[in-house]
Write a protein that binds this DNA or RNA. Structure first.
Lengths: 156, 156
DNA sequence: AATGAAATTATGAAACA
DNA sequence: TGTTTCATAATTTCATT
């Protein structure tokens, strides 16, 4: 079992489900919905925040509404598997705000990046920014035509 | 230019940057930070909510903290490119809460799914649930070993 | 010790200048 | 557009079990 894993009960789970869907309703409303007292609910939320289960509260911006019409998945293969190289690559890629997700993978592909860009020209700009920071040889991009589902809620 | 795209100015952009990072501070705090009056700030936020730029406010749960240690990318190739098949597949995959993202792709792969699961056994369970709903022949899974960056904020 | 009711403080929403 | 007012919600305290 994961060292970071925290125990939560059904009430916690229900709170998380609700807050992951919509964090805007008042405590009173939320508590009433879940048949909890306002305070019980409040204390559970505070505990889960302290435990790092609830990492943060954010506003979700619709990418289309601000002209970000393209999601690109960039698969990177490298011959250099040293910690030093990864450190440099991780720092460079993470600092690029268009790189919204970044994973170290098992199997054929070594790293997978998810980019959010305006169009193909914008992708090219970000790509150049990336390879300028860290030389990359084996890079392949896959373009998403349509975002059918995007969910920040994790299954609890 | 995208039909859905809305015009925003620098103040809007600053508000979005801040709220995407952390939506918990009070209006007063946020406004002070950006050298705006509380009300100007409030009105801008309300407008952006009405325009669909700010889609919603949510709590972000740390997947590790609830035992979801594995991100899996599932690439699907299909021979059936009819609307009817896509409709069925989209409905089935979207209804699975472990499928957190789902894209229609250009190129070799037809669809890309991002799954959040506990472990390999859990992946197998979700995979079976998926192919039970819609028969899939050409499926390949890539496992993420480490999540280096995960950002809900889009570049504005 | 844990829980819920109630008082207090802070914040959001609206009217108005 | 900024200032003031009012309503609502978050937080703390306290009594009860």
């Amino acid at each position: 079992m994961n060292i970071n894993m925290k125990n939560i009960d059904d009430n916690d789970r229900n709170i998380l489900k609700a807050l992951q869907r919509d964090a805007s309703p008042s405590l009173e409303n939320l508590a009433a919905q879940l048949s909890l007292s306002t305070n019980a609910c409040w204390r559970r939320i505070k505990r889960m925040e302290a435990d790092g289960i609830i990492a943060r509260r954010v506003a979700i911006v619709d990418p289309e509404a601000v002209g970000l019409r393209m999601t690109v998945f960039v698969a990177v293969r490298t011959s250099d598997h040293s910690d030093k190289w990864l450190e440099k690559f991780a720092a460079a890629a993470s600092s690029v705000e268009e790189v919204v997700e970044f994973y170290r993978m098992a199997g054929e592909v070594d790293y997978l990046l998810k980019l959010l860009v305006r169009d193909v020209a914008d992708y090219d700009r970000v790509y150049k920014k990336l390879i300028k920071a860290v030389p990359l040889s084996d890079v392949s991009a896959s373009f998403a035509m349509e975002r059918i589902k995007y969910e920040t809620a994790v299954p609890v």
